[in-house]
Design a protein around this nucleic acid. Structure first.
Lengths: 133, 133, 133, 133
DNA sequence: GTGGTCTAGACCACC
DNA sequence: GTGGTCTAGACCACC
């Protein structure tokens, strides 16, 4: 299994699972329709309680990243076609603001920051373009 | 006082204070040497327990954003000249990664995202260039 | 076949079948004596396990919506003439209570709600009055 | 404490708590700003585990029925001013459809049903108009 | 004191 | 086998 989790981190373990899977979907490591490991299997793999993993899956379903088919498993959801509402865009703008603040306090120039963002975008795109066969 | 805090938000109140002041420094609203309100004044102003504000100031000092001179008050610290260590750069890269992940799940295209980052940079720079007199 | 089912919904698939057929009977799309498709045909049509469809038919029989005649098929039951017992009326009252609670939390005014109920009634009646020939 | 819960019912206990509190808010038994019992107190009162109550409160916060102020307690939220999106109105329409279907299978005439809905509205309004002093 | 998270372990409905 | 719910009990951050 590719996923790792740090129980001592300040972000809750179930949130770390949510974020890691969202990242894998964004990178194209997980594709629409792909089946996730079962709650119990992933729990054993990460040496966590199954409740913690179940909570992560519920949150992922709520955020429409996966579809949970009771009795059959959890699957990566199709990409949403509706445009996000304004309150969801605010979340991105909040992240950007935090990023700019941190960059300033790290003495990171505008160009250096933009270069890092572009590098990240390139990395994501490269993986997405890749093939899994 | 310009600062506002939302007790219902999920980020702890003391963290909101830290972030708001770091943002004001980054925007140039607060300049090196500027004096911050006293812990008690700010606590009264925000109707918070003074312990909460004290904790925020401690954290700001730890992050070298302010200098606390006992009995004299708290002041915006001088800009650091040393380059940040690798562990601090990782923090920025983590924020960038989270930003790219959220942007993907919001169906935000690369260009739209870069435009939003540039817009934020422009907004910060404009304020910094400004004059307070 | 007219019926569709969503495996990702939180209501169990067999319940969705039960509800859909009860709705068709209420709307007059299905009339007393009409023959339902066989369990296996419907299972194939909906790409479901036949156990799931069988369970739905059992439930429909228990609720006296259909009659299952072994070896002959399942048929829409005759309209009941006896008045419902108090425990069944409680079910309707429970639904009304839930409806009023949801309407309140959606800021839906009394008149708006009544208008929606009346609109629903009108829609049902129109279909029932219609002809299928 | 006014609230009761049935552990043998098919709706999960945490959902029963959510529904009961939403109903009390809709009826005006709970008013904006009212403090809910603490998670632990309510758990003791209902002889439930505190986790179950905590989950109910989290769901109520997600549905914007209450505000949870960490370390201070949970409070009935102010009535929302924004109009609900179309997907939330669909929830009400789904409830209305279910109500009409059940009413038909209970031989309940249109007028009887409307009378019951109006009776419910009257009951809710009477309580809301009341005074608690 | 307040809510949030987590483990260990049980039981259940659905497929 | 799959996810969902619940208890008992522990530990933690925040106020």
């Amino acid at each position: 299994m590719w996923l790792r989790v740090d129980p001592r981190a300040s972000t809750p373990v179930y949130r770390q699972i949510v974020d890691a899977i969202k990242e894998d979907v964004a990178r194209g490591v997980l594709l629409t329709g792909d089946r996730l490991p079962s709650v119990r299997d992933l729990a054993v793999d990460l040496t966590l309680n199954h409740n913690t993993v179940a909570r992560a899956y519920q949150e992922l379903e709520r955020e429409q990243v996966i579809d949970v088919l009771r009795g059959r498993g959890a699957f990566v959801a199709a990409v949403r076609t509706d445009r996000p509402g304004p309150e969801r865009l605010e979340a991105v703008e909040g992240l950007i603001r935090r990023l700019l603040v941190e960059a300033h306090h790290l003495q990171l120039g505008d160009d250096e920051l933009l270069a890092k963002v572009r590098a990240g975008l390139g990395e994501f795109r490269r993986e997405k373009g890749g093939d899994r066969s």
